[in-house]
Amino acid sequence: MTVAVGGRRGVDLSNGLENIPVLIERSPDEPTCPEFQYSPDNVQGPGCTVDPSEITVPGCSCITQSCFTESCSCLQAHGRAYNNTRILLDLHKTNTGYCSPVFECNALCSCGDTCSNRVVQRGLRLRLEVFSTWNRGWGVRTLEPIKCGKFVCEYAGEVIGFEEARRRQLAQMTGQNNYIIAVREHAGTDSVTETFVDPAVVGNVGRFLNHSCLPNLFMLPVRVHSVVPRLALFAGRDIDVLEELTFDYSGGYSNQPSVELLSTRSDAAIQASRTDGLQRKACHCGTKNCRQFLPLDLSILN
């Protein structure tokens, strides 16, 4: 079905499952859109022992529409992540490579749906369009300005276990895209939580986001109803209309190019990036600090 969003017309890729249609423009000159099942939320896949839709996080007993730190058990336990306009706080921490955990109010909380601590769970609220890039297949661009710190979309798909992620990675044929994102959270010296999300077969608009070595989005694990985090993408700077949305597949983010990344990789470094017969794909982001190759999570393969 053809829909109109923000003065543009196209097919709703989400088939009405999102709050706002996700446009995709198709023409004879553009590549065929891959077949996949659209899902705005994570689904349980092989090796995942917890259903992402199961409510496992306790709620607050606030009686106000929006929670206050002085009285909300959620905010007292985990801190305030957003301001009153649902903009992410402490953005400067994203440049360090580390961030504080984000917990939103959930289905067990008694606060209202308009609570400022409910952001990612409200789903897609921006007008986005999937389009054909000239050298990187499909991509995603915004049809409206996006303020720094605003939630953009999730990277949703099948939540799978480590062994399944490794099996899928090794089974990939030459030329196939790798959609698996591995997120590791460190809660202490010996406490590491790993989450693997693969939107190749079941996923949302996030599966079309391209990598950039100097991206405008960054990813944060956000817990809402479940202990399984939702991989949320936020704007790292103000983003203009029709600008392509990108994030660093390795999880990094910086508004400025890193000096270390400007150096050319040696032959030895390129050879070390190959493992189990897999050749890293060239990066075509075109930024001044381009690392030449897309990130590859070697820990899944070893």
Rank of each mutant, 00 (worst) to 15 (best):
T142N: 04
L209A: 05
V183T: 10
G10A: 05
Q37N: 14
P28Y: 00
D238N: 12
T264V: 15
Q37I: 08
D12G: 09
R291E: 07
G157C: 06
P257T: 10
V197P: 11
N95T: 15
T114I: 02
L126N: 09
C153M: 09
T64Y: 06
L278N: 03
G277N: 03
N302C: 00
V57I: 13
E30Q: 13
S100V: 13
T174E: 10
R168T: 09
T49L: 09
T287W: 01
V228H: 01
I270V: 03
F103M: 15
Y155I: 02
V241R: 11
A269N: 05
L296F: 08
K93H: 12
I160G: 07
R265P: 06
E70Y: 00
T142I: 02
N177H: 13
F36V: 13
A268N: 10
N83E: 05
R118F: 09
R280V: 02
N210L: 11
L217I: 12
V102T: 15
L217D: 08
S14A: 15
H186V: 15
G236D: 09
I24E: 05
Q169Y: 04
P221V: 05
N255W: 01
C290N: 11
I63L: 14
G16W: 08
A182F: 05
D198V: 00
L23P: 12
V227T: 14
G123C: 08
E144D: 08
P199R: 03
S254Q: 09
E35K: 14
V202I: 15
L301A: 06
V11Y: 04
E18T: 09
L231D: 02
E185Y: 00
C285E: 07
G286E: 02
S250E: 09
C115D: 04
V259G: 04
R230T: 03
N255I: 02
G59K: 01
P28S: 08
T2S: 13
L75N: 06
I24P: 08
H225Y: 02
V205I: 15
T96E: 11
T264G: 05
Q121G: 13
V241S: 10
S226L: 04
R127Q: 14
S27A: 15
T114P: 01
G175M: 10
S110P: 02
E243C: 14
V183K: 01
G277A: 08
E35Y: 12
H186E: 12
L75I: 05
G137K: 11
P145Y: 04
L261G: 15
S61R: 10
L214M: 06
S258W: 14
S299Y: 00
Q44D: 11
T49R: 12
N210C: 03
V11W: 00
P46R: 10
F196S: 07
F247E: 00
N302G: 07
L143P: 05
